[in-house]
């Protein structure tokens, strides 16, 4: 079964990069442009993994993760945040909000897939 990944990022470049890596690794990708859009997409999709950025307009990564963890349908979905390495505080905060793991920017496709493997069957 092809797994579906939801990517949430306000940067088109980042979304394209993720898509390139993920489709290359055999995943199906759906995208959202910010946290609010992400919640809207989740109303109609049941992704196997969610990858989200933190800094976004309308609803940022923290708010988005918290909302997903509150949602009965998706609370069990692994969520990976995109973060810059130098931010242990952000990682901690993301974890507190409910993030499953993280991917460091700039990411390489291998690390990306490895992170996904650690959180999704």
């Amino acid at each position: 079964m092809i797994q579906t990944i939801l990517t949430v990022d306000d940067s088109r470049t980042m979304r394209d990069m993720l898509r390139l890596a993920l489709v290359g690794a055999g995943f199906r990708v759906v995208e959202a442009v910010d946290g609010l859009d992400g919640l809207a997409v989740l109303a109609g999709e049941r992704p196997d993994v969610i990858i989200t950025d933190i800094n976004m307009p309308n609803l940022d990564g923290f708010g988005f993760i918290e909302a997903v963890r509150d949602d009965a349908d998706n609370r069990g979905t692994p969520i990976l945040v995109l973060t810059t390495e130098s931010d242990p505080d952000k990682k901690a905060r993301a974890r507190d909000a409910g993030a499953t793991g993280w991917i460091v920017k700039p990411f390489n496709p291998e690390k990306l897939v490895q992170a996904i493997r650690r959180v999704a069957a």
């Binding site: 306000d10 800094n55 920017k105």
Partner: peptide, 19 residues
């Protein structure tokens, strides 16, 4: 201010991806 931060942040993010 947030929007300004995000703009710089996004530029940095993409730039990092391309080295």
């Amino acid at each position: 201010v947030n929007a300004v931060f995000r703009a710089v942040h996004s530029i940095k993010g993409g730039a990092g991806a391309f080295g």
